[in-house]
Design a protein around this nucleic acid. Structure first.
Lengths: 349, 349
DNA sequence: CTGAAAGCGCTAACAG
DNA sequence: CTGTTAGCGCTTTCAG
């Protein structure tokens, strides 16, 4: 009934026990009389006392916490990943700390702070920068895994030193474009992002290129749209703008590969607005395999990332590193082409 | 270059200054020689020292932090709200703490813990339970505002004691259904959630009822679908299932009101799959006015919640309460019907 | 099984 | 402008 200024001292005084006994009760310590514990817990419930976490963590030397650092919590693809990752953390009776990293924050710095403050056991990075300062990373002091932010090769001085789990983006994009080519398309546009920097966008664009080359189709720069504005590239708005621009510059474009499903949905809207029929006039392929894509009209053909497998691999690797059973590894998984209505009329109607 | 175990003491020792001077440098205190500060900061940069937040917050007696407690971070409607709210917090040079509340957590308890730990100035609750224990709430000890989780009337013992900002859900739903009726519809289905508990679902369902009554249309229980499974009610999956069920039980249904845009999208997919044309065979109205709705095919007619206005009102009220310029208030804003393709063929094509 | 006492790392008076 | 000192609220030895 008293207000929120209670400390463990007050509970000690009111209960007649010492501070340490109260602490034992709170923390479920074994060496305490069960009646004593019950009495104390009852008083705590009555008074509404809540221990101050700052004090607890300041004193503690270790915890069982894993932090998930998410940059771009809006991205529906991450929602799924978080869900699976949280499950695995819980299964191993660790605690999850989900930390949303604002776009202007540096996820590694935030992680460092959390390591100190919460005595983390490990870290998962979801989204965020593709290139990191190895020196910075070394300072983290606990195992960490980059998850689903692309292959590390060529974007880290020593990829084998950094743990990474992702889909093989180049290969996955190739699958998508190979498929479009197999349907007879030659004028294939792409909506990507940040090509000038190392990013999944760049990797998927590389796949697009390789696929064209393999088929002997010359790459036409006019068929590439790069979403650059704003920090949130993966928006329907950008997809819309991209498709409209590509269409304006390439009236003969017959297929479009978007590096995310959200972009693809925006793109579809633009194509329809321009009077095009999907897939008769233009075929569209997305990337990620988010739930919404399968409810979109038309249902989206996409490259599905195996979320559950990726989440599981991320956590196994992290826990192996925590338990010194493994060093950092760069694990790549295949993605799967899912053919739906946005590329073939007959499919799934 | 040293690992992450540095404390302020190490920096003091290495720099030759005392702990308090280092603290002054870190915290941008005015009474410190600027050269001293520069020297210390340089050393801090070099060594990669990061102060332990637990210790800082433990010691501090106040902060300028506002916490946003979000239950259901997946909900795209909240993303927008968070964005606006963060802006206002920053404008007033307060700090935002965005806390994701897991579905099994109690947001008020989490908030209490945060109040103690971070010495919060105020709290915004986004999503989460519709009914709260007043005693619990009283213990928070700092001003708080419930935002966009519905009108408080009848679901709190004393609504005038609790700060609340929302759209007038009953009225808003009436607008939607009035409009459908004005189009000539009589068999109007509704996809809602949690009717048995106080919730926005219940409020919007009430609006649906009132609108039918006003028009002299008898309510048919078969036309109500209640999404209950799972904790996340606002999913495309639930929308799909709802529409399919309603359609099976009401072949003559000609309009459908969904209490969120996400539900509406799922519903549209089910209707199309059942061979229906939107809006020719069935008109669909959503609720919220999220970005995606305007990119959906067909563009969604919806009840748009004025996010920016709601966010601004939430923050003004909170800051007024913090500055003792106001007591808690229950503020309701009107929502706006936006007519698009999912109800009228000619609109916005 | 319980209590006393020593800090965790930092900030904030209080002196100089 | 700088250093000394006293805790913030809690956990955890170490005794009893």
């Amino acid at each position: 009934m008293t207000s929120g200024k209670l400390t463990i001292k007050d509970i000690a005084k009111q209960s007649g026990y010492s501070i340490s006994t109260v602490s034992r009760a709170i923390n479920n310590h074994p060496d305490i009389n069960s009646q004593t514990r019950r009495d104390i817990m009852e008083l705590i419930d009555e008074t509404g006392f809540i221990p101050n976490d700052s004090a607890r963590f300041l004193k503690r030397t270790a915890s069982n916490s894993i932090a998930i650092m998410v940059k771009g919590i809006t991205n529906p693809f991450f929602s799924g990943m978080i869900h699976y990752i949280e499950n695995y953390i819980q299964e191993l009776s660790y605690t999850t700390i989900l930390r949303h990293v604002a776009s202007e924050e540096d996820e590694v710095l935030v992680a460092m702070s959390l390591v100190k403050e919460r005595k983390l056991k490990g870290i998962v990075f979801l989204g965020g920068a593709f290139i990191h300062d190895m020196e910075q990373l070394d300072k983290l002091g606990v195992p960490y895994v980059f998850s689903t932010i692309g292959n590390l090769d060529g974007r880290v001085e020593s990829a084998e030193k950094v743990a990474n789990v992702a889909v093989d983006d180049v290969d996955a994009a190739m699958q998508a474009v190979d498929y479009l080519i197999s349907l007879g398309h030659k004028k294939i546009g792409i909506i990507s992002e940040g090509l000038q920097l190392a990013s999944v966008g760049q990797l998927r664009w590389k796949g697009y290129l390789k696929s064209l080359q393999k088929a002997g189709i010359a790459m036409d720069p006019k068929l590439t749209y790069e979403a650059n504005e704003g920090i949130e590239h993966y928006t329907v708005q950008n997809g819309y703008k991209g498709a409209r621009t590509l269409l304006d510059n390439n009236p003969e474009m017959s297929a479009l590969f978007c590096i995310s499903d959200v972009l693809a949905m925006g793109a579809c809207r633009a194509l329809i607005d321009a009077g095009k029929k999907i897939p008769e006039d233009i075929a569209v392929v997305g990337f990620d395999g988010i739930d919404m894509g399968d409810y979109f009209i038309p249902r989206l053909t996409t490259i599905k990332q195996p979320q559950e497998k990726l989440a599981k691999a991320t956590m196994s690797l992290l826990f192996d590193m925590i338990n010194k059973k493994s060093g950092p590894q760069n694990l790549l998984y295949p993605a799967q082409l899912i053919i739906k209505e946005s590329t073939e009329l007959s499919k799934n109607k």
